[in-house]
């Protein structure tokens, strides 16, 4: 391997259970991921209907200059009297579309490079994983800036593609590690022994078992793309005429919103980004716990743990004697000492 060997993300996946619908439902039953999905759906709805429900034209100037939030302008106005709330609503679409496109394209690239490199092995693996690592090591932002800065038109789709092109490295790395471990599993070996073609094995035996990892890498890339896109807009590298949350911040920054104390100008956009990002992080928590059950620790029963006074830890098994379930098994010469009702430490 040309990379440092241990990989935090390469948690073992249990192949046998991946296809089971029960487990998929388990993922949806996870409180964290449900909350994340709910927030994401909320923003998705806004992305669709935002421009229709926006009370004002986001670019329209008015006499209400630099107004604090009020009934007429829920999130106040800019220095030229534009309605910040409308800008946020209209800008949602741009943010989500760019994030999703970048996420889909980058994940496709990551799957292509990661899985082939894991599967082909040998020289092809060396080259492909070196390629992925190169993209991982090169700082993305300056690279994106020099590319978009020199493009004649840096609109939404272009930015999405540039981001996708520069951000697939992580996903590819994780997928490669995962593919490598899958490749040695019995069921893949069996398929190979049966003479199934490599691509059939990849498509039917490997990819379904990578679903969770692919999903995690997709979610990660979308988050990254959204943050980068907003950052690029904020710096003013990309087209400032399209409304998105970053452009709002760009105008706020370039018009000294901070110095003027116009907090309503930049706080809502940032909170929206944070909320959306949190949603993705929560979804990823859910996927992590789904992939690596060790992280789960019966999260749902944390309260019952506390009630029973159990601190689960390695090396000092909890002793609980106050439960109402006495040993049901046979008892050879009952101990002389009566079991006290002493609670545990």
């Amino acid at each position: 391997m040309s990379v440092i060997p241990v990989d935090a993300a390469a948690a073992p996946v249990d192949p046998a259970a991946v296809a089971a619908t029960r487990r998929r439902l388990l993922f949806l039953r996870n409180g964290k991921s449900r909350l994340g999905i709910a927030i994401l759906l909320g923003f998705a709805v806004l992305a669709v209907i935002g421009p229709w429900i926006a009370p004002y034209d986001p670019s329209a100037l008015s006499r209400d200059v630099l107004q604090a939030p009020s009934g007429a302008h829920w999130m106040g106005t800019t220095h030229t009297g534009q309605d910040v709330f409308s800008q946020i609503l209209v800008g949602t679409r741009g943010v989500l579309v760019v994030g999703m496109i970048a996420g889909v394209v980058a994940t496709a690239l990551a799957v292509l490079v990661g899985v082939s490199s894991g599967f082909l092995g040998g020289l092809a693996d060396e080259i492909l994983s070196a390629l992925a690592n190169i993209f991982l090591v090169i700082p993305a932002l300056p690279l994106v800036i020099i590319i978009t800065g020199q493009l004649p038109d840096a609109g939404g789709i272009t930015v999405a593609l540039v981001l996708a092109f520069t951000s697939w490295g992580w996903g590819a790395r994780v997928l490669r590690a995962q593919t490598l471990s899958l490749r040695k599993r019995d069921f893949v070996e069996a398929a190979r022994a049966n003479g199934e073609s490599t691509w059939r094995i990849v498509w039917f035996e490997t990819l379904p078992n990578l679903t969770a990892v692919i999903a995690a890498s997709f979610v990660g890339t979308v988050t990254f793309a959204i943050l980068s896109q907003v950052t690029l807009a904020f710096i003013g590298v990309t087209s400032i005429s399209d409304w998105n949350w970053g452009t709002i911040l760009f105008w706020a920054q370039s018009n000294q919103a901070l110095a003027r104390g116009a907090w309503w100008w930049f706080v809502p956009a940032g909170l929206c980004i944070a909320l959306l990002g949190t949603a993705f992080t929560l979804i990823n928590f859910g996927i992590d716990e789904f992939v690596n059950p060790r992280l789960r620790l019966a999260g749902a029963s944390a309260r019952s743990l506390r009630r029973r006074g159990i601190v689960p830890r390695i090396g000092f098994t909890a002793v609980v004697r106050d439960t109402g379930c006495p040993p049901s098994g046979p008892a050879l010469d009952r101990p002389a000492l009566a079991l006290s009702k002493e609670a545990t430490r």
């Binding site: 988050t223 907003v230 950052t231 940032g270 944070a274 990002g277 929560l282």
Partner: peptide, 18 residues
């Protein structure tokens, strides 16, 4: 930490300045 990692660096900077 989930929330903090989802916030863009520069926006946290803006808030800090504010």
């Amino acid at each position: 930490t989930a929330f903090l990692s989802a916030v863009p660096y520069f926006w946290l900077g803006l808030i800090a300045i504010m």
